[in-house]
């Protein structure tokens, strides 16, 4: 039976978790270090979502090295299309606003005809990036309070503030800047903390 009372908008639980893919990338890739945590809370079929992470890359390029280091968060709403499911399993579509604060540095050498090779060491001490995401995915109860969730995200509309003579190549939480949109993917392990007894 569908709940039509205003009480259905009172949250029933909070889910907290961590992104396993980011942890895996940190463990197995030498050019990436970071982690991401996520939380959501339900308001009937709508879920308020917040994600926070750290991200640092060390990209070796053929004439030098690019590094960055920063944090990011995303906030948004998911709409659950399985809202009648008694276990609150989710197939959702949603949206996020992304925000990143980071510094980056580029060291490289470059030569042109007629002139000697030059070495460059340039940096941006404080860059802010914002973007928008469309999301979709699943969150499934595995056992008791333990859940797994997969989120796919299409990121676009990147806007950078604070770039000086270095054009940022990689934005924490977003990815490389040379494309106008990116796909992202997260695989979360979550714990659900009930806020009120299940009816």
């Amino acid at each position: 039976m569908v709940d039509t009372t205003a009480a259905r908008f009172i949250p029933t639980g909070v889910r907290l978790g961590a992104d396993l893919l980011t942890i895996g990338m940190s463990s197995f890739r030498e050019d990436f270090d970071g982690w991401e945590v996520a939380a959501d809370v339900d308001f009937y079929r709508y879920y308020l979502v917040a994600e926070f992470g750290t991200w640092s890359t060390n990209d070796l390029i053929n004439n030098g090295q690019y590094t960055n280091d920063g944090t990011y968060y995303r906030v948004g709403v998911d709409v659950n299309f399985l809202y009648k499911d008694p276990d609150k399993n989710m197939f959702f579509i949603g949206a996020r606003f992304g925000h990143s604060t980071f510094s980056d540095q580029l060291t490289y050498s470059y030569d042109v005809k007629q002139f000697p090779r030059s070495n460059y060491d340039v940096s941006n001490p404080g860059v802010t990036g914002t973007w928008v995401e469309m999301t979709s995915g699943l969150k499934v109860k595995i056992w008791s309070v333990f859940w797994l969730g997969a989120t796919g995200r299409l990121k676009f509309g990147l806007d950078l503030d604070g770039n000086g003579n270095l054009t940022s190549y990689d934005v924490p939480g977003y990815g490389k800047t040379f494309k106008s949109n990116w796909w992202g993917f997260n695989y979360y392990a979550l714990v659900r903390i009930p806020l009120r007894p299940k009816k």
């Binding site: 990209d59 070796l60 390029i61 053929n62 004439n63 030098g64 690019y66 580029l106 490289y108 470059y110 460059y120 054009t167 190549y169 040379f178």
Partner: peptide, 8 residues
């Protein structure tokens, strides 16, 4: 930076 293989 254009790409890792292309350089800066």
């Amino acid at each position: 930076v254009l790409s890792p293989s292309c350089g800066a």
